[in-house]
Structure formats: C-alpha cells, structure tokens
Amino acid sequence: MINKTVKNAREAVADIPSNCMLMMGGFGLTGIPENCISALLERDITGLTIVSNNAGVDDFGIGLLLKKRMVKKMISSYVGENAEFERQLLSGELEVDLIPQGTLAERVRAGGAGIPAFYTPAGVGTEVAEGKESREFYGKMYLLESWLKADFSIIKAWKGDTAGNLIFKGTARNFNPMMAAAGKICIAEVEELVEAGELNPNEIHTPGIYVQRIFQGKDYEKRIEQRTVSK
C-alpha cells in the first residue's frame, strides 16, 4: 500500500501557493476541514479562488480566510450569514460566482470523473443561463455546464487509513467525496487515522486513489449554526 500520511495540517498545506484554485468540503459548518483552515491562516498567501458550497461565518470556517484577505473569489451556492463577506463583496474586494447547488455538486463530480461538460435543467430561463449554450432534449430545455477542477482540494472525513481510504459520518459527507477526486492534490484530514487494512473495504465511501495526503486532525470544534431542539 502507498502511504499517504503527512505529519499534520501545517505540513499538508505548506506548498499551497498564492493565486491558486482550492476546493473545500463542507455544508454550512458541517464537514469542513477545520485543521487545514487553521494551518492556512498561518501561511502568507493571497489571491485564492475557493470552491465551497458556503463561505463559513464571520469567525469560523472560510470566514476566517476572508477576514485575513486571503480570498480573491468564492464559487458557491449560498453565502449568507457572513457580514465580512458582504462588506468585501460590496466594496469590490471579493468576487463571487453563485451556482445552483446541484450544478455545483455535479460540476465538481464531473471534474473528478473526466466529463468536461454536461446538460442540466437548473437555471433555464434565469440569469444563470446568460451566456450559456442551451439545448432541448425530449421536449425540455437544458443548460450546458462545464466541469470544475482545482489545484488542491481540502476535505474532512470521519475515519481514514494510511492508504487514503475514507469514511464519512452523517451529513458531513456532502461535497467532500467529489472534491477529493476533483483536486490535483487532495488533502484529507480525519478524526481517526488507522493503518491500511483496518477499515472494512465494504464500508469505504471514498477510495484512497483520490487522496494524496492524509493526517489525523485534532481539537475539532464542530460549531453548530442552528442549534434546534425538540420542545
């Protein structure tokens, strides 16, 4: 087995340059690579383009990278709940490309799967369709959307092994598996790292072929955005 292990988050993100394209897993604050975000904050880099469904909140997740002015552009489906994001966007410091969530997921999946473009019904007749090729199939209109790829994808899983095989928990899976495949270099942080052979191959969600670096993270905060309980 090829050993993909690196020592920690700092080592995993040490060679990420300014002005590159990153993908970051997570939906809201669930399943985000907390350790790598902290390690990126210690790096002196700027001009990042980040593909992520959301942009974190003011003081957690990608919001921290925004606050430090490391981000040039966000490619996301929903970016609410972040005042600093709004300020930078309105002042023109930050660009944002808003994409329907299913189209975003499929563009990332296509990038990892070697499919350069595909047709989808989402956005037909809306401003999302502007400048895009549209075509009718079986009596319904569809838009042509292209793949997304990244220089680095940074993801978070529950368990992983030294060969890079990953298992996710709950709804923390979200965009992480597709991003693993769509990054030239995929960095995976996991809550529990075990030796190759210890995970049941029947239960692997993301095969290690997509993962180039893996490490066991620590001190997960797992902040909750909307703590909602039964009455």
Binding site: G102, T171, A172, R173
Partner: peptide, 26 residues
C-alpha cells in the same frame, strides 16, 4: 453537529434513513 438539514438546523434520522453525498442528492 454532523447531522443537520439543509437549513443548517440540527436534526435526527428517521428509521430507515440513508446518507449520501451532494452529487447523489441532486
């Protein structure tokens, strides 16, 4: 915290639930 709905609210899973990634979901 690893189990939320699309409104980012904490939820539980009903009997017979299934979990999957965002591409599969759409």
């Amino acid at each position: 915290p690893d189990l939320i709905n699309a409104g980012k609210q904490t939820v539980t899973m009903a009997k017979g639930s299934a979990l999957f990634n965002s591409a599969e979901s759409f």
